[in-house]
């Protein structure tokens, strides 16, 4: 599974402080720790409190680039911030994210195309998030059609079926799993699937247990990648074990260690 580390986000207090005081060490430490813990890609989000998102995004990316060449997922809703972020971040970056709304796709897909970025697309449209898999798949199909119009390789699309907190929207978990399974059938080459995982456990008392249980279920449904906290060792262990049981890696007694050596 492609692991996108979620920790560089202005929503977190230390990152917010790091941005405000221009303390590079805070940001670089979080970047390093996530990569050491198994992140393949680092998500970068200036957070809702940023008064100057364009500047803050540029500073964050340049700060991260001083310590790693790892791919970055530029996490913003603003097209100008996205364009600037993808420009600085360089190759193999992710656009995080667009929804299935026509105007968003029209604004963001050309930016992704220009930078040859992979695209994380949420199955949300003007009416919101559908309750069932069918509605989510319909939006995913629209996103794929739009991407094809923009001559984007569909294997660069990462469809996020949008999981909602289990304490308020319990029926959505099954719908998301079904969407993950069927997304693969929508086109050839098949799009990838992704989840912003931690949403599922918002407001619950046992967040990490809910996170890792749902991640394992999603992997069994064919999930390709997730935006997660790689510093949650139990979560990473569950992911590694699930992939082992799915035959993605060759078993050996030290399989957790083996995965971490990759």
């Amino acid at each position: 599974m492609l692991v996108i580390g979620e920790k560089i986000n202005g929503m977190f207090k230390s990152v917010r402080e790091g941005i405000q005081t221009k303390n590079k060490k805070i940001i670089q430490d979080i970047a390093r720790k996530q990569l050491e813990a198994g992140a393949d890609v680092l998500d970068v989000n200036v957070g809702p409190a940023s008064a100057e998102p364009l500047k803050d995004m540029a500073w964050l990316i340049e700060t991260i680039r001083e310590v790693t060449k790892a791919p970055l997922a530029i996490d913003t809703t603003k097209p100008d911030v996205m364009d600037r972020g993808l420009t600085i971040a360089g190759e193999n970056s992710f656009l995080n994210s667009t929804t299935g709304e026509e105007e968003k796709l029209n604004a963001l897909l050309p930016i992704a195309k220009k930078h040859n970025a992979k695209i994380i697309a949420l199955t949300i449209d003007k009416a919101g998030i559908p309750n069932h898999a069918e509605g989510r798949l319909e939006i995913a199909a629209n996103i794929i059609a739009k991407a094809m119009e923009h001559e984007i390789d569909t294997s660069n699309l990462y469809i996020d079926a949008v999981i909602l907190p289990v304490n308020v929207a319990q029926q959505h978990s099954a719908a998301v799993l079904e969407t993950i399974k069927q997304t693969k059938l929508l086109c050839d080459p098949a799009p990838k699937t992704i989840l912003g995982l931690s949403n599922v456990s918002q407001g619950t008392n046992v967040r990490t247990l809910v996170d890792r249980t749902f991640l394992v279920m999603a992997l069994a449904s064919g999930l390709d990648s997730a935006i997660i906290n790689p510093l949650d060792k139990d979560l990473m262990d569950a992911m590694i074990t699930a992939e082992l049981l799915l035959g993605k890696n060759i078993y050996c007694d030290s399989f957790l260690n083996a995965y971490r050596k990759k």
Partner: peptide
């Protein structure tokens, strides 16, 4: 044994 081969490489 592929599993033992992997384990020994790790060790």
């Amino acid at each position: 044994d592929i599993n033992l081969a992997k384990q020994l490489n790790i060790l």
